[in-house]
Structure formats: C-alpha cells, structure tokens
C-alpha cells in the first residue's frame, strides 16, 4: 500500500479490499456469509481459526477459498493418528542415488513466506502434534535444523468434524485457547442456497470452484501492519471497557450476575476458562469488526457479533454439564448479553 497517504485513507482502502475479499470468497462458498465475515475479522485480527461442523458442509472448501483469495504460500496437512510432530518439520526419504535425505517438511518448506497453514481434521492428530502447534500459533516460530524459523505472516486454520469421536484426540485447553475463534459451520438454511449447492454443477467440482476465485485479493505481507493500524485506529471508550469487563464477569460467574437458566445450578456451572488472553482476543476481533463497519470506535454490537465464536470455546463447564455444552453455552452467551447493561 501507499505508505505516504494518511492513515485514515489507508484504512479506507483496506476496508474496500476486505469487502472485495469477502465478495470473492462468498462467490464460491454460498450461504456462509457469517462464517466468511468472521474469517475476515480473524485475518485482520491476526488470529488462528478452528472451523467446526458436520461432514460435507464446506469447511475445507471455505478455507481453501480463503487461502486462495488471501494469497501467499499455503501449506496443508491432514491430521492422522500416526502423525508425529517431526512429520510437520522434516521429510525423510531415500533419494535416487540411494542415500537418505532429510528435507524441510510442510511447515518449513516455504519458510518465512508461509501465510496459511491449514490443518485438516486436527482432532485426528495426537497431542504431541497439538503441542508443536501451540508454539507455532502463539509465537509464530519454530526451532529446527539448529536454527529458529520465524513466520511473521502465519495464520493457522484448522478444522475438525463434530460427528466422529473414535480415534480422535480432544484438543487440550491450552491449544483451544490459542485459537482466536472457533467457528461453527452449518449447511445453509435458505432453500435457494441449498438448491444451488445441490444442483448447480459449479459447486460439484471443488477444484474448479476454487480456481475461479480471484487470487491474491489481499496483500498478505501487508496484513500484519494493517492489523496493527486497525488496533490503534479504533478507539475503545471507558463505557465499552466497563461493558466488556461486565460481560467477562457475568460469563465466569453467571450466578452472581443474576443469570438463571432452567434446570441448571448456575453457581456450579462454569468451572473456569474465559482467560484474559481470550478477552483480549475478543476486543481485538471486535475492533476489526468496528473497522469493517466503517467506525472509528467500538460499540457493544461489535462485541456481541464476535462473542460466541471468540469466547464460547474458552468457557469450561463442570463435567456434569459438559455433555450438554452445545445447548448450554449459546444460552449462557445470550443470557449474558440480555443481562449486562450496555452503556
């Protein structure tokens, strides 16, 4: 981007680029406007994203579409039970001359240029792999071949399906906390999108569909800079600070905030979670949303728009309620917003 232009104009240009990016992706992935908006927010908040959903709703297609529109180097691995951390870092094989060779694996192959690392079916990989990802996600660095690799532009996208439980490993809390968002993906509800998805041959060939997306809509190398500019450019008033702290308190201690859900002991519902890092992520994502909505200050709606996806997976319930998580946590989030006064 043109660095000599004033900051506001630069942010405006980038907002238009973000809109073009959303449009490009939604051309290929129909009926997922909310997920695309959240992914855009995650890209400009420099956060990692975990997509969750049923089989065949388009998780992989969506991430491939985003990767193509975002540009930059892109690597993809499939999680398997026998995958080891070294499989991500090294690739060993016998060369044609019969000698063993060690070459950089998927993470290191594109080295510093890597912008999207896409981990498919992450819950099939073992905890050892998850812990390698921890460092990759939190510090964007990795030590291998006796030196440290840095990935300044790296964003980790992962997906997992909700259906299968066999031969899968639940992500550790620390790993889940490092994801900015956990976006639940569902098949579109409206009849028109469904008809199109089923009958339009364009959606049957995923490769052609992805190739149809305009590549490199955003300049991935400039995004870290613009993300910093957004965080400085969008103001948070004292009222919104009070509001966010109130939401946080109500989420962790719903009983004390006067929230009642039927059939649940509110004082023994939330075990922990909702880390300070999580709340900081929340504000970061909300600021990006405010910028996308062409505002220079945060409003409660920004917080509310990203809250379920940023915060829900960071709340840890008592084991009694954990199995009913899918219904309890959305209710809890809704109740928190119905209870905490906005201004």
């Amino acid at each position: 981007m043109n660095e000599t232009r004033p900051g506001d104009a630069m942010l405006t240009d980038w907002r238009q680029a973000a809109v073009r990016f959303e449009r490009a992706v939604s051309g290929a992935v129909v009926g997922q406007d909310r997920a695309i908006r959240l992914l855009t927010i995650a890209i400009f908040a420099r956060g990692h994203v975990l997509l969750e959903g049923d089989v065949g709703v388009g998780k992989t297609t969506l991430l491939r579409a985003v990767a193509r529109a975002l540009g930059g180097a892109y690597e993809r691995v499939e999680g398997t039970v026998d995958m080891m951390p070294t499989d991500l870092v090294y690739h060993t094989y016998l060369a044609e001359d019969g000698r063993p060779r060690v070459e950089p694996g998927p993470v290191l192959r594109r080295a510093e240029d890597l912008s999207i690392f896409f981990f498919n079916e992450i819950n099939r990989a073992r905890p050892q792999v998850h812990s390698l990802l921890l460092r990759l996600m939190a510090e964007r660095s990795l030590t291998a071949f006796n030196r440290e690799y840095r990935f300044p532009n790296l964003q980790v996208f992962a997906d997992r399906n909700r259906v299968e439980r066999e031969e899968t490993f639940e992500l550790p809390a620390a790993a889940r906390d490092r994801f900015l968002m956990e976006i639940g993906l569902e098949a579109p509800r409206d009849a028109e999108s469904r008809r199109a998805l089923v009958f339009d041959p364009r959606f049957h060939d995923t490769d052609a569909l992805i190739d149809g997306i305009a590549a490199d809509v955003l300049d991935h190398a400039a995004i870290p800079g613009i993300a910093r500019a957004i965080q400085h450019g969008v103001q948070a008033s004292p009222a919104i600070e009070t509001y966010v702290v109130g939401l946080w308190e109500a989420l962790v201690r719903p009983g004390g905030a006067g929230i009642r859900l039927s059939g649940i002991d509110m004082d023994a519902l939330v075990q922990g979670g909702a880390s300070p890092r999580g709340v900081a992520f929340l504000v970061r994502a909300a600021k990006v949303r405010a910028w996308l909505e062409n505002r220079t200050f945060l409003v409660p709606e920004d917080i509310r728009a990203v809250f379920p996806d940023v915060m829900a997976h960071r709340v840890f319930l008592e084991p009694v309620y954990e199995m009913r998580r899918a219904t309890i946590v959305p209710d809890l989030c809704r109740a928190v917003f119905d209870t905490v006064p906005a201004p």
């Binding site: 709606e301 917003f337 119905d338 006064p341 906005a342 201004p343």
Partner: peptide, 19 residues
Amino acid sequence: LLALHRGLDATDGRRVLAD
C-alpha cells in the same frame, strides 16, 4: 440517555442495543 436506555431494557426484558 441512560434513563431512556433502562426504559427500553425494561420494556423489552433484555438489553436493547442500537442494532
């Protein structure tokens, strides 16, 4: 402004934001 906000909240039984 706060008084009117509380009026809106109490009328609707939930917190009413601009959206």
